[in-house]
Simulated assay, not measured.
Amino acid sequence: MSDIERPRYIPVLLLDRQRRLVKTVAFGERTYVGDPFNVIRLFNEKEVDELCILDIDAGRDGYEIDHGFVAELAGECFMPLAYGGGLRDVRQCAPLVRNGVEKFVLGAGTTNPALIGALAGVYGSSSVVACVDYRGGHAFVDGGQRDTGLSPLALAKAAVAAGAGEVIIQSIERDGARTGMDLAMIGTVAAELPVPVIALGGAGEVAHLAEAIDAGAAAAASGSTFSFIGRLRAVLVTYPEDLTDKTGGAP
């Protein structure tokens, strides 16, 4: 596999309304993981492929993006950075770009083709990531609280048709379970889409990430794999060495 084709392994950091890093279980129960700046510095040292930061309360609470805080986070980040949470208007993204954000992750915005098209028109499709969260065969938004009435595949296809250049497919039920990803869904969505698919939800060890890649994902993302160790879920933020080669990239 060439360096261009090699899979990506992406830590996902969840910010709450208090700017703390947390890890959720099925989008509910939360565990405090640490200070975002310290965790970003650790991932810099580990030469992570890229980093995804999601403000999981912004959309539901309706507060505006704190661009000063995002600028501080991006200033500590030495790898490509994707950011999501509370993105409702293309005008919000210019400050994010100036501050070092390279990709925009849309949650509820995934159901807004006009927003996707506007972002793709200004910043390019490769900068627009549609996050499709699903449970029981239905895609949900607003932190898993609102049923879109669409299947995950249907919503993903609509987002790509509108201009999204990547799709995150995430099982709400497997979030934080650490028992493995929904390989059947990952394979189905990856086979049907002409853009890279990022698998998220359920990984608890490196083997689970590899399984997602084998199922067809272009990248495997996780919070738990890079945040917890052992059966008791002790917090240990890390990036396993077997995900990097001698040049710092994934094998």
Results as ranks from 00 to 15, higher is better:
Gly59Arg: 09
Asp3Phe: 05
Ala203Leu: 03
Thr179Leu: 11
Gly180Trp: 09
Glu166Phe: 09
Val25Met: 00
Glu50Leu: 12
Val48Arg: 02
Gly117Pro: 07
Gly107Val: 04
Phe228Pro: 01
Phe226Val: 03
Val70Arg: 01
Ser227Ile: 01
Tyr134Met: 12
Gly136Thr: 11
Leu21Met: 06
Tyr123Asn: 07
Gly223Arg: 00
Val189Lys: 14
Gly163Ser: 04
Ala158Glu: 14
Ala184Met: 08
Glu241Met: 04
Val33Lys: 02
Pro11Asn: 02
Gly109Ala: 04
Ile169Val: 15
Glu76Gly: 04
Ser126Thr: 13
Tyr83Met: 03
Ile4Pro: 00
Ala156Gly: 11
Ser227Arg: 00
Gln18Asp: 15
Gly68Ser: 12
Glu166Pro: 00
Met185Gln: 14
Asn44Asp: 09
Gln92His: 08
Arg146Asn: 06
Thr148Glu: 12
Phe104His: 04
Ile56Val: 14
Glu5Asn: 09
Met1Trp: 02
Lys46Thr: 01
Glu241Ile: 06
Asn112Cys: 09
Leu236Asn: 10
Ala219Ser: 13
Ser224Pro: 10
Glu5His: 13
Arg8Ala: 11
Asp66Phe: 08
Gly249Ala: 12
Ala162Cys: 07
Ala154Ile: 01
Asp57His: 15
Cys77Arg: 06
Asp3Gly: 01
Pro80Asn: 04
Pro11Val: 07
Ala158Ser: 14
Arg135Glu: 12
Ile213Met: 12
Pro194Phe: 11
Val12Met: 07
Asp57Ala: 10
Val22Gly: 00
Val206Gly: 07
Gly149Trp: 06
Val22Lys: 00
Met79Asn: 05
Asn38Gln: 15
Glu192Asp: 14
Leu200Cys: 12
Thr188Val: 08
Tyr134Ala: 05
Asp175Trp: 00
Val122Trp: 00
Thr244Lys: 15
Ala184Gln: 14
Gly124Leu: 13
Val206Arg: 10
